[in-house]
Design a protein around this nucleic acid. Sequence first.
DNA 1: TTGCTTTACTAAACAGTGTTTAGTAAATTT
DNA 2: AAATTTACTAAACACTGTTTAGTAAAGCAA
Lengths: 208, 208
Amino acid sequence: MGIVERKEREKTEMRDRIVEAATLMFLEDGYEKTSIRNIAEKIEYSPATIYLYFKDKDELFFAIHNIGFQLLLKETEKSHKIKNPLKRLHDIGVTYIEFALNNPEYYDLMFIMRSPMNALKEKHGDEQCWTYGEAVFGTLVSTIQECIDQKLIKSKDATIASMYTWSMVHGLVSLKIRERFKVMDLPEDQIRKMLLQSLDEVINNMKA
Amino acid sequence: MGIVERKEREKTEMRDRIVEAATLMFLEDGYEKTSIRNIAEKIEYSPATIYLYFKDKDELFFAIHNIGFQLLLKETEKSHKIKNPLKRLHDIGVTYIEFALNNPEYYDLMFIMRSPMNALKEKHGDEQCWTYGEAVFGTLVSTIQECIDQKLIKSKDATIASMYTWSMVHGLVSLKIRERFKVMDLPEDQIRKMLLQSLDEVINNMKA
DNA sequence: TTGCTTTACTAAACAGTGTTTAGTAAATTT
DNA sequence: AAATTTACTAAACACTGTTTAGTAAAGCAA
């Protein structure tokens, strides 16, 4: 019986249509304006229908959050070809900063907003939910481990070093995205330069 | 005529009562649950009254945000007595991290949430609005400048170095507050230790 | 003291939000 | 053909920030 398979296909198709519409609205108008009602109107269904495919708004935004991680993972994978782990580390950093600056809405959802993390709370144990995030972080840890093995950096603990390199780039872009660099009273384009300059200097400081 | 003075006093008293009630609710129940209606009920006035003292919710939360900065400034001022600028830098970092971990709601409002920044947009030019933030950041910049002058760190640019040290500690605590360190799958108390350990290592890396 | 004006406040409405419930019409199975 | 399951929705619930129009009291001038 192909009916049950068609139904399944239709179910995922509908889910995807919702996520697609929500993503478009989110990227264009931001989180606040992307309401369940607006999404429903866009796909020409009633708001209640969305709740047949997603538990709540957080779960829907977790789906978008996940697509963001796929995009970031694809970007960081380009660094794989770089043999020198220190140069690769730098390249991952640049990729991360540029991803954040070019996709501020995605970045916000992935690393700043509370919404997708609320969804993650209930369904821990579910495979293929946090995997993309772990993959990106794993790339960072293994690259730093290579640096340690080759005695290229001072640090001895890859976890600690990963923690603060990630924190540093996240701090840079999140302060930018949430407009906290305004205290520094600098022009937009100079901030952008200084973010990359900061990355240079920190990695340089790490060198053995 | 003392009437106009009494009226002025009553006006600021009322404003303070609103901020006080809002702060208490915010710290206990979080931003989302601190609604204009709930605050109004707590102080036994109608919701519309709050709009006679604050332009909107953002402006009210900017007032709370400002109190947070006063608290942080008071904490960081304790580091002033430390003569060695590098040790002082480290102490400021520890203070910053501990402030964030002990007052996550305040920290969130001060450095992560959009709300207070929206309020800041309209009224630029207003004195005594962003001053506390500038004071805290100024302390960091001048401490780092001292480190450069005394050739204690490799960096030559105090602005850049301030940018990435701030970003690093902000990154650490904001990833913690917004629950992104869950990818690392580590127990709560160990995360806390690693935040301070990260600070140690980064400052060590900065040494000339 | 009376009359006018300003001040301080509020009830009610406006326009939205996420979410749930009860009910319907069509598709599918028996 | 009847029974059941599926997919969907109208309407309601309980909220949210904010505005408008109106009221009662306080302050001031004649």
